[in-house]
Nucleic acid binder design. Structure first.
Lengths: 208, 208
DNA sequence: GGTATCGTTGACTCGCGAGTCAACCAACCC
DNA sequence: GGGTTGGTTGACTCGCGAGTCAACGATACC
């Protein structure tokens, strides 16, 4: 109904600008780039950006929320499903790694400009970011109740470790500190979960 | 020799500005604050800041390097000392946690404005930051050779997990996501190492 | 006590880039 | 085909804040 040729074209333009913004943010960083860079990348006039978005900030907010809400939905679904804690954590890690594999730019922007940008957008979106921590914490807590995971680790702390490791791995890829071939990515999924669940100690050395 | 009353006073002023900058950076963030805020906080004239530092950036660089070099020295010393891997990792975690306990503002600035600021100062100081990863990786690798830690975990990956967890915990404290009484901090030291070394799984569930 | 040195001052410049706006144009409607 | 709506344009404004600089003042040295 609201889908005349005209309003469809408008929606496309908005998408076009959003996608261009992701590219530019990923390439130059949010603060280092100018709004004119986004307009140029999208091939539209400067002013049009302000027709679709009220500010430069709003563009980044939109990029972040669009993707983060998907992540939250996926984690919640994983939590509700049947399966072991290890499987669930693996599913979550896999989804994030696959997201990066599929579209490195969006993930780079989200992590570098929001999640890790504690003083600017990270602060604004702290509640949203905490939701993810909290959902992961739930997965751990439930598994502890089933006796599947050690009960003597604070589930919030476990969530911190799990998410922290994933973020570090993605950051490593983003800044080319660690290899990132498709095989490396596949391996990382397992490594993350194994390290978190099994620990670094050799078997048998484990403290009671 | 170079320690006339005058040059001593000059060194003190430099220190004064540096300390004021830490306070201001911690309170407002590097980008959000103005150089005049630093001058005000230090109780000196605007221009004097530029007598001691060539730019706003150089102030943050100085704050970061001063402290980070201490960290690198400590990790290297820990690595050289006798002791189990668990003890060494605990020493490193303790040093970082104690640093935060002793002077939260400096650590906040280092983490928020440099270490986590991947697109601005994090990029500039990447080599320095990597040194820390590399030193931690060495600690793990040596312990693996002694048969003390599992050999099937990439030591670089282990370093990522270890440092990532610590950074997340400090970030949690900085943004008041997790409790940070002196007892919490003491407990965190042990929790970090236990979780990393022992894993989340209940004993016996561990994969071969 | 005269003068060179160097710390200290704060008003000023200057470039940058986010956001505005008046005009323009193309599709749709009657 | 005249008019209305709504997308599109890009030159312009405007505030901000980093960095400059000319003048000032206190200490050291002879």
């Amino acid at each position: 109904m609201a889908s005349t040729a005209r309003s469809q074209a408008a929606a496309d333009k908005r998408r076009l600008i959003l996608d261009a913004a992701v590219k530019v943010f990923a390439r130059q960083g949010f603060h280092a780039c100018r709004v004119s860079d986004i307009a140029d990348e999208a091939g539209v006039a400067y002013g049009l950006v302000y027709h679709y978005f009220s500010s430069k900030d709003e563009i980044l907010d939109t990029v972040f929320l669009e993707r983060w809400n998907v992540l939250l939905k996926v984690i919640a679904e994983v939590d509700r499903a049947e399966g072991s804690a290890r499987q669930k954590l693996c599913d979550i890690a896999s989804f994030i790694v696959d997201s990066y594999h599929h579209d490195p730019d969006v993930m780079k922007v989200i992590i570098v400009e929001v999640t890790r940008a504690a003083n600017s957008f990270g602060r604004t979106h702290l509640p949203k970011i905490r939701e993810a921590y909290s959902l992961i914490s739930d997965v751990v807590a439930k598994a502890q109740q089933r006796g599947e995971l050690r009960a003597d680790v604070n589930p919030d702390f476990a969530a911190l470790t799990f998410y922290g490791t994933i973020e570090q791995v993605l950051t490593g890829w983003i800044f080319e500190l660690i290899p990132q071939s498709p095989e490396d990515m596949e391996e990382a999924k397992a490594s993350i979960v194994d390290t978190i669940c099994d620990g670094l100690d050799v078997i048998g050395l484990r403290a009671t």
